[in-house]
Design a protein around this nucleic acid. Sequence first.
DNA 1: ATTATATTAGAACGTTCGTTCTAATGCAAC
DNA 2: GTTGCATTAGAACGAACGTTCTAATATAAT
Lengths: 186, 186
Amino acid sequence: MRTVKQAIAYFYDKHKRMPTFSEIAEMTGYKSKSAVSYALDGLIKEGFVKKDAKGNLIPGRLDPVRVLGLVEAGFPSPAEEELSDTMSLDDYLIENREATFMLKVKGDSMVEAGIHDGDMILVERGGKYREGSIVVAEVDGEWTVKYLRKSKGKAFLEPANQEYDPIYPKDSLVVAAVVKAVIRKY
Amino acid sequence: MRTVKQAIAYFYDKHKRMPTFSEIAEMTGYKSKSAVSYALDGLIKEGFVKKDAKGNLIPGRLDPVRVLGLVEAGFPSPAEEELSDTMSLDDYLIENREATFMLKVKGDSMVEAGIHDGDMILVERGGKYREGSIVVAEVDGEWTVKYLRKSKGKAFLEPANQEYDPIYPKDSLVVAAVVKAVIRKY
DNA sequence: ATTATATTAGAACGTTCGTTCTAATGCAAC
DNA sequence: GTTGCATTAGAACGAACGTTCTAATATAAT
């Protein structure tokens, strides 16, 4: 039999909604909703789950990722682990969902900025940028990711790789989106 | 007034649960649950939301990130945009939530692998690794992120930076976790 | 203007929800 | 063994759920 915590986490992961009391009872082996109700009181105090203004069950500390500190600090003991902050990567990385897109990077023109061939970038369309921002831009009809620079009031793009040259627009340079994050999955 | 789509997306983002029909009605200006019910029929056909086996509303294509292709392909038109695949970064990056942690990297010993000072790494404790994997390990009491290498049957750690030397364990080398992803937020 | 079609409001319905009460059971301390 | 406390089962409850029906309204086509 699963613990209540495991059951809720598993269910939420799988169904993208919180389980009902009956469903929790079924998963954990409880034979009454009331037992679940009392068990949940504890988890609510603990912050593992919450109830919103309408009394509906919502996730508390059951976001998928546990956030630790520096690598040098190593891993916590199982007891400390329970107390780790949790986080959703979606919430961490996305500010404006309507404007956020994921794109794949080809080539090594930004390697010195830590953006490698095949990396995914999270970009925000219409996001704020300034000189030095990494942007997705359309220069004379071609789309690229580069540093945005300015010289004598004119904008141009600069790669992060010695072997490539800066790109000075002949006709047009339109900044379409700003790179907000880089994600590389192994 | 918001459209039904906007209302649901907003509500799900904010409350981490799907709204009820009444709540959708309130947000969109509908004055009856039945109108919402019929409106949802369309969105279900479209795949924007779904119903699970028990008839409960669950997210369909309202994951927070729209996935495009290569940077070179640029952005789609608003019409095509509607059809873009969506994704949750949590689902994309996390396989085993129980074993997944996020850590912060200090130093530049892995820059040539595209891991910079201040980057976050997603690691899986007890994950499978082999020679060449980037791992979080404890060597003689010190925690670090490095390439795992082998020489004459003995494991050692190799930085991705010319200026650093490989680390050959005096007493012990324990691989605690495998780096599954690198995340850099600007 | 008339007709046909789609959309919306409102009420009614059965179902399921979470809470709460009482009673039974399990467990620990003494 | 006995007492006291916490946990669980089961039933009952009102509230809210989503569906469905009918009637009214809006929209479009002719």
